[in-house]
């Protein structure tokens, strides 16, 4: 179980909303947002995922002074163990499912505490990518008063080889 603090900031909400192509002013304009049912700037429905920014151990962000597996002088910045598999294996796995339950709207100014617990794992034989290993995690986001705001359940998958593409996408 891991616990992280996630301050929900208006500027971060603005950048996140832009990145998903959502110009709704309830995510960016405090004066306008006050006049809506939300009563102030709220976060878009998938914003909780951006808590990764505040997770000091998050593996998919380059860290100061540490090797990074993306390209630089070479195609990858680290030497991988042989036979480590391709595809998802080359990038820390793929995201298979994501589920959110909203107990109340998430608002700018909230300070969330995220507590993640690992869920079950299972395997499946995939037609397009060989053996698939799924693993689930559940994160509860509680606010500054200890009230549950969002329950998130994610499922990641590691593939034996890169996912084959349907013919029309070659």
């Amino acid at each position: 179980m891991a616990t992280k603090t996630f301050p929900v900031e208006a500027g971060h909400i603005l950048m996140f909303a832009r990145s998903v192509g959502d110009g709704n002013r309830v995510y960016s304009d405090a004066e306008y947002a006050k006049t809506t049912e939300a009563g102030g700037i709220i976060a878009p429905p998938t914003f909780a995922q951006a808590s990764a920014q505040f997770d000091p151990d998050y593996g998919l962000r380059p860290k100061i002074g540490q090797p990074w597996f993306g390209s630089g002088k070479n195609a990858t910045g680290i030497t991988r163990a042989p036979g480590g598999g391709g595809g998802g294996g080359g990038g820390g796995g793929l995201h298979a499912e994501q589920h959110f339950e909203y107990h109340r709207p998430l608002k700018a100014g909230d300070v969330l505490t995220a507590t993640t617990t690992p869920g079950k794992t299972w395997e499946k034989e995939g037609k397009r990518s060989g053996k698939l290993v799924f693993s689930e995690s559940v994160t509860e986001y509680r606010d500054q008063n200890g009230e549950l705001v969002i329950t998130a359940r994610g499922v990641g998958v590691r593939t034996e080889r890169p996912v084959e593409q349907p013919a029309e996408k070659a």
């Binding site: 971060h12 950048m15 996140f16 832009r18 990145s19 998938t46 995922q49 951006a50 990764a52 920014q53 997770d55 998050y58 998919l60 962000r61 380059p62 597996f69 993306g70 390209s71 195609a75 990858t76 391709g86 595809g87 080359g90 990038g91 820390g92 793929l94 995201h95 298979a96 994501q98 080889r161 890169p162 996912v163 593409q165 996408k169 070659a170």
Partner: peptide, 29 residues
């Protein structure tokens, strides 16, 4: 914005030469 810097989404060289995909692809999220 999300903080997910997986090179599979942003680094064409890594994604094609190391991971074996035809190009970078979007985050599911």
């Amino acid at each position: 914005a999300s903080g997910d810097y997986n090179p599979l989404h942003t680094d064409e060289i890594f994604t094609t030469q190391v991971a074996g995909y035809p190009s970078v692809f979007a985050h599911g999220m």
